[in-house]
Design a protein around this nucleic acid. Structure first.
Length: 462
DNA sequence: TTTACCCGTGTA
DNA sequence: TACACGGGTAAA
């Protein structure tokens, strides 16, 4: 088929927020959901809003809070789903709570996103179905970028907008990425520049949803947008190649299977979609290596991915402490102990104060909390917030050691690691300089607590 | 009437 | 230009 890019189709996604705000909000949403769920829908709505208003500011209207909850945390991020009247955290949220890997969270979203999907209102879904749209847009974009690099062509977001995300034929799955690149090369030779613009409309109408789709690829650590140019992060080649490999596969969730004109069909469609989308990609669990967050290179290099280490943060802090103590007094280095494998102490590293004065050799207990994200956290940003979870043991250690207890919060971001040190969180909580809230219950039970038991022979359930 | 994506519009 | 609040709007 001959590619005609003039066949355009405005194909929107829900408007999100700025890149760094999304990176900031993700941990907040995740922890709120983790605290509240499972619970019924009304309780969830009220309490989610009550928690979020503390972060966004008391002036924030109910409407805006509702939008955050339903549009971003719910539809775009797929962080929870509704089963009956009960709201449950999605597997994507649970994985994130476990690994604190924000780019991996967004990789999973990029893998599962598709057109048409169940994030739209039903009339918009019907429009897309009527237009015979069927595409996994992120695999497709990545394949286009790979193809562009092969042809030594640099793409701008206007190119992706006009030739890919707003091109009807591409959205219908009728054109290959190579054809797209060929067409772009051809039109550039003729001196033609394309932009998606709707007469009489502001550029946000035409471009905001496109720009934000590219933002998700950036948050996933797969591309960088440099003013207007888009570049692949080749340190992520493994993940890029994996996702791009799906460019010509039919969307996994088949919208065309549903009768969207009947009440029953609509209900099933939106329910099935949310269950599908909020679950993790069943084929591959994404991770982001520290290595892939380093300054990206424009030169394709072979397989730089290394096996992710569970204790990257601890190793980082260990090296930092060794250097810090060495510069004060090398003989004190032997007092630094890495206790990563020793569970139940409530801290990861035992170090020494190593500062002038009589407390120089006093012990310092360090709990390391690390996370990975694409934007650099900025304390001067008014929307900046963060949440970490301490275990019961860690909190007890904080209470016991007070001024000797430190939380080292490490953020691995592209090209740098940033660390915030919080000394004596226990006293800070009493002084309301931070808020600590117990959120989990340990249940000890005995024979008097058990109502009944069920035993089945293996054959019955195998 | 309420809900919840849709998206105008004003701000930085 | 890049959002982000909250009004717009149509379905629930």
């Amino acid at each position: 088929m001959n590619f005609d890019p003039d066949e355009q189709f405005r194909c929107t996604i829900i408007r999100g927020k700025a890149k760094n705000m999304l990176d900031n909000l993700l941990p907040a949403y995740a922890n709120i959901i983790d605290d509240l769920c499972p619970c019924d829908k009304g309780f969830f709505a009220t309490n989610f809003n009550n928690r979020l208003v503390n972060i966004l500011g008391q002036h924030t209207s109910k409407k805006t809070l509702d939008n955050h909850r339903t549009e971003i945390a719910g539809k775009l991020f797929g962080m929870y789903y509704e089963d009956g009247e009960v709201i449950l955290p999605s597997n994507r949220t649970l994985k994130y709570l476990d690994d604190s890997d924000q780019p991996a969270f967004f990789k999973d979203i990029c893998f599962k996103f598709q057109f048409p999907n169940g994030m739209d209102k039903v009339d918009k879904v019907i429009e897309k179905v009527a237009a015979r749209i069927s595409i996994r847009q992120y695999p497709y974009i990545l394949q286009v970028l790979l193809s562009a690099d092969k042809s030594n062509i640099r793409l701008t977001k206007d190119d992706i907008a006009f030739y890919v995300l707003n091109s009807l034929q591409v959205l219908q799955g009728k054109v290959t990425p190579d054809q797209v690149i060929e067409k772009i090369a051809e039109e550039r030779n003729e001196g033609i520049t394309r932009k998606v613009r709707h007469p009489g409309k502001q550029s946000s109408f035409s471009m905001q949803h496109i720009r934000e789709q590219l933002n998700y690829l950036e948050l996933a650590n797969l591309i960088r947008i440099d003013s207007n140019l888009i570049q692949l992060n080749y340190r992520e080649s493994k993940n890029i190649n994996y996702i791009a490999g799906f460019w010509d596969k039919k969307p996994e969730f088949d919208v065309y299977n549903y009768d969207l004109t009947s009440e029953e069909g609509k209900k099933n469609f939106f329910y099935d979609w949310q269950v599908y989308y909020s679950d993790l990609n069943g084929h591959k669990s994404f991770t982001t290596t520290i290595d892939s967050l380093e300054v990206y290179t424009t030169t394709p290099t072979c397989d730089l991915d290394k096996k992710a280490l569970g204790d990257e943060g601890e190793n980082f802090v260990l090296e930092y402490e060794k250097e810090r103590v060495r510069s004060f007094d090398p003989s004190l280095i032997r007092k630094i102990v890495h206790l990563g494998q020793t569970k139940g102490l409530g801290y990861d590293i035992q170090s020494v104060v190593a500062e002038p004065g009589e407390s120089a050799e006093f012990v310092k207990y360090i709990e390391v909390k690390s996370t990975k994200r694409v934007t650099v956290p900025d304390l001067s940003d008014s929307t900046w917030i963060d949440t970490i979870n301490l275990t019961r043991n860690e909190w007890i250690a904080a209470a016991q050691h007070r001024k000797s207890y430190y939380i080292y919060r490490v953020y691995f971001t592209p090209g740098q690691a940033t660390m915030y040190v919080i000394r004596d969180p226990y006293t800070k909580n009493q002084d309301e300089k931070l808020k600590a809230k117990p959120v989990s219950y340990r249940i000890d039970f005995s024979n008097s607590s058990v109502d009944y038991m069920v035993v089945e022979e293996k054959e019955a359930y195998q």
